[in-house]
Write a protein that binds this DNA or RNA. Structure first.
Lengths: 121, 121
DNA sequence: AGGGGATATTCCTTGACTGGAATATAGCCA
DNA sequence: TGGCTATATTCCAGTCAAGGAATATCCCCT
């Protein structure tokens, strides 16, 4: 049910960018506009979609509205992902977990499959 | 990069349904058509999108083509999710971890909070 | 080679989503 | 109250994805 709007909300790259911004902390609309490079109306519209999906909540502070992430839908995504995670864990094992033991990165081996960087999109 | 097509591919409910089907095991197109209720051309088109996103791979068995999940993009999704997972784990802690005391998990290892529910959409 | 089944690909129409510009609304302060 | 700032909403045009129907393509079998 909420799944539908959740996926739809995250399908847009700009919206994912906004969500990534809010991961660092709450932001007012003006700040989001400044940091995302989107126009103000466009930002408001995207925030509306994110709000409808339950991904963000608003706190009204004087004239400005401060948006913050709501973790619940993310958890929902995670739950959806769970069965698949088993799958690729299994396949990683099959490929040989030994390769992961070398946690260092030797120069000349740029095969980074899994980064732990912030979501950039 | 591949992120874009990945999210776009999973944004569609029918496509997620197909992916959920393939989670149970590889399927031929005909079987997917039968189980998903979609038309054959529509199914082929959705499979094309999933293929472009790297979510499925095809094995050609005589005249039929058997589709199977490719775990890698799912892992990518999981990587994207990782920073947020910290967030909602934290908020779960804030809500009071004491409620979970009925479980048998040793403290200090909240790595697997997720259940093993099937993706319901 | 011909027939038939399985799958992919067009063509077309329709609906949804997006961005920009302009405008409306709401809350603060002098 | 008037004006200013911050945010939301409407209107509109362009774009893109989805479904249906028909058709093409590929592969096996006799």
């Amino acid at each position: 049910m909420s799944n539908a709007s959740l996926w739809a909300a995250l399908a847009d790259p700009h919206r994912r960018a906004i969500v990534a911004l809010l991961l660092e902390g709450p932001r007012s609309v003006g700040e989001i506009v400044a940091e995302s490079g989107l126009s103000q109306p466009s930002t408001s519209k995207h925030l509306k979609v994110l709000r409808a999906a339950g991904l963000v909540r608003v706190r009204q502070d004087a004239q400005r509205r401060v948006y913050a992430l709501d973790p619940a839908p993310i958890a929902e995504l995670d739950a959806w992902l769970a069965p698949y995670r088993k799958l690729w864990n299994a396949s990683l094992d099959a490929l040989g977990r030994r390769l992961d033991e070398t946690s260092q990165d030797p120069p000349g081996d740029p095969s980074d499959v899994t980064e732990e960087t912030a979501p950039k999109d």
